[in-house]
């Protein structure tokens, strides 16, 4: 399947499970649309967590959000893990790059050895995932070869498919029971890979 078809498949599947998808052609475009999205959608609760690794133009986007009055938690090695967790508890939006995406189920894969990413993608009520176009594969079979190699090298992986949900009360679907209530994907077209392999 051609790369564009794989992207289309991801978008179709994502929409079916209540995930919004936006496309950006390059890092500058991503920066603009992300800031635009955040400030328009979340005018009332202004806090965001951004990891430095794997985030294109983090050094530009952080000051920009700060000048717009956003509280920005920077996730990098200068912060102690316990302190990071304590601050993350109060953050509304977590932004994370991911390692791989599986189009046929709209699944996002994060390697567990990435510092902070498991927490950023879990604690805040909103999770925005940045997906490089080249990191999207069509199906689980293709993904499993890559993941198999990762497991041999190091720690495990986390799959995320849609927002946190439950049907435990009279089978009513409720989002955001423990993890994020909203999951949004930004696809970056001109991008090899966001995270070092």
């Amino acid at each position: 399947m051609r790369p564009d078809r794989v992207v289309d498949r991801l978008i179709t599947e994502a929409k079916q499970i209540g995930v919004e998808v936006y496309e950006a052609k390059d890092p500058q475009h991503l920066r603009h649309s992300l800031v635009d999205f955040l400030t328009k959608r979340y005018a009332t609760h202004n806090s965001v967590c951004i990891p430095l690794e794997g985030f294109p133009l983090a050094d530009e986007i952080i000051p920009e959000l700060k000048t717009k009055g956003w509280d920005v938690l920077q996730a990098d090695n200068s912060i102690k893990f316990e302190e990071f967790l304590e601050r993350l508890k109060h953050i509304q939006v977590g932004i994370s790059p991911i390692d791989l995406s599986i189009a046929e189920t709209s699944t996002l894969v994060i390697r567990n050895n990435r510092p902070f990413l498991r927490e950023i993608s879990l604690l805040p009520p909103v999770h925005i995932a940045i997906v490089g176009k080249d990191q999207i594969v069509l199906d689980m079979s293709t993904a499993s070869e890559l993941i198999d190699g990762w497991l041999t090298e190091s720690l495990g992986v986390t799959f995320i498919t849609g927002p946190s949900k439950t049907a435990d009360i009279e089978l009513n679907l409720v989002k955001g029971v423990h993890g994020p209530k909203e999951l949004i994907i930004f696809i970056l077209s001109q991008c090899q890979s966001l995270l070092p392999s």
Binding site: E13, E104, N112, L155, I160, P163, S164, A167
Partner: peptide, 20 residues
Amino acid sequence: AAAQRMATYVSIVGPGEKVS
């Protein structure tokens, strides 16, 4: 289990995952 194409969260974990 729940008529989903894929369950929402899948964790593959083992020893050594804890930061602490």
